[in-house]
Design a protein around this nucleic acid. Sequence first.
DNA 1: GTTTAGCACTCACCAGCACCGAGTGCTAAT
DNA 2: ATTAGCACTCGGTGCTGGTGAGTGCTAAAC
Lengths: 351, 351
Amino acid sequence: MDFELTLDARKQQILKAVVSDYTETGVPVGSVALAVRHLGSWSSATIRNELSTLVEIGYLLQPHASAGRIPSDRGYRYYVDFLMEEEQVSPAVRRQVDPVFPTRPAAVEELLEAAAMVLALVTDAVSIVTGPRALGSRLKHLDVVSLDPHHALLVVLLEGNLLQQQVFPLSVPAEQETLSRIAAELNAVLRGLDPDAIEAVPRRDAGDAIAALRADTIAQVLLVMRSDGAGEDTVVIHDGVRNLLRQPEFGDVVRLRQVLDIVEEERALGQLLASLDLAKSVQGVHVVIGAENEVEQLRGCSLVLTTYRAGDAARGTIGVLGPTRMRYSQVSPRVRYVSQRVGQALERLLG
Amino acid sequence: MDFELTLDARKQQILKAVVSDYTETGVPVGSVALAVRHLGSWSSATIRNELSTLVEIGYLLQPHASAGRIPSDRGYRYYVDFLMEEEQVSPAVRRQVDPVFPTRPAAVEELLEAAAMVLALVTDAVSIVTGPRALGSRLKHLDVVSLDPHHALLVVLLEGNLLQQQVFPLSVPAEQETLSRIAAELNAVLRGLDPDAIEAVPRRDAGDAIAALRADTIAQVLLVMRSDGAGEDTVVIHDGVRNLLRQPEFGDVVRLRQVLDIVEEERALGQLLASLDLAKSVQGVHVVIGAENEVEQLRGCSLVLTTYRAGDAARGTIGVLGPTRMRYSQVSPRVRYVSQRVGQALERLLG
DNA sequence: GTTTAGCACTCACCAGCACCGAGTGCTAAT
DNA sequence: ATTAGCACTCGGTGCTGGTGAGTGCTAAAC
């Protein structure tokens, strides 16, 4: 196998044409079809010769001896890196995407779920969205509601309008009025702090009931905030599994099952994303083709991923998973577009 | 077609055996197999005669002339209603289910997601869980958090500790302090009231800023309470789509897609559940067999559903969707078991 | 040297066909 | 009422030969 990294212009053109045709039809593409559809300037025989060398040097595959050619992973990689011309995101798509992001999003969860939904819709693939890392790290508001004299409900609003609740026992019986006063005081003191700062807040060990309740509450606040931030990519949302069923490559149910086993297993998916995204901090859309990811079961699948940003701190991963035979030139800009919208909405949400 | 509703003992035994065998193997079951595996006391010829009449009166189907028999929807219905003996929930299953429900669950969402996950696991079907409805609910607590001078976040705690949030615009700019005062006042006035009562609360049209903000807030509270009660089942979680792929009835991708189109579409699923659950307020597990549900695309699927309860107010639907050829005698008690666990966990959560 | 026309060859795909066997319905004997 | 016996049905399997898209190679043309 030859390892020349550069292809001459004609080979590039042919590779591009093969990717384009095969992506569209899903059928191995032959020399005659190429000649008439794309490359009239050469005869099918010439193209055959070129195809033959492209197979030799690993950019194309031949399913069987008397069949046309399909791009190999390496071929797709070359296409994506050097040949692909990204399509504009059409107004029609914009009209589908934009209304999903309200000017005043209510909460992060809903925002991401909406994003996953619409991304699946406009890419015809399975969308994957992770929750913003290091979000909800600061306290925005808290409230304490009396349930009975010995128990209260702590309501915590974190940065990003992440709402958390927690029932906890009171070490001293208390009425709502007392709790409200404590909540008000803590709001004034703790607002905008992260867990470490909250822990560092001096505790007035006055030994009285108020101090005890105050300590109770702070302990619960820390519990809630810490338990949330601990995991890697916390939430992993996905949508659009039904889109895969439209692809002929998943006509075989077994393959589909392998993919679903990964996608539906939040942990596995989170690990996969973590392993990929750390490898590259570069901006832009990241395309992982076929066997480039190390998960055995995702052979034949590609990932198109990017990160969304709000300000600088909060970021998560958003993208799609689909068959390797995917319209990268269209999917890639759409992923980027949705990602930008998510970022903007998140910024509005965070204020 | 004869319409006798009661089957003699032998027909019952045969029907039961057919359901049992077919459920296990997925292959139409013939008279000889029945004779040797279940009903040695009669010859295959006798059984053939009985099978023939069971087909005539609609309890069994014959895929083609020289094939064995499979249960019809009606046959399954008879089986579930009269013949089925529920299996015990095995200790092994309990060991899978129990650890999922911590003694102190953090939030409703997580609880339900965990329930969906484990229910899919132990039933080998697609689990479906809706968020707890707050029917006829009363206001327990509210809080208003300033986002910016012109917008605030309303946090509403309903009876049953159901948290709801809503961002809304302020008709008059306001600071947190003002909002807190309004929240405190409204808490005193509105606590324990239902939407109608809240609407009836006199509005002091003082024309000042406070009155305007007060009106804004009340309007939002009503919106939240009403939209929650009025809508169908709010959140719909599902898990375990991959389980369907193991079933031979979904070897055909087209059928799978039809089902997924429903399952992945939250709205459609919510409507379906709403339409079913209203029809029956009886306690216990509800089995919807094959074409008994009115959704065209779910032919060949059955639903096993129940409601989970915590106290009396909060309740939601939990259950599974799978092929009609399903092990009802096992699935049904497992759905009930998980449902009970959810209820208990919810009670602990609500305190 | 590069390109191209021509041609034999390969191989997946499909339709047709015979065969097999599980399973039935019917009849006559028990 | 039950059962043994038997002819019949019909989906599934595997074999066969034909078809056509597509190739690789060779020799001629540019």
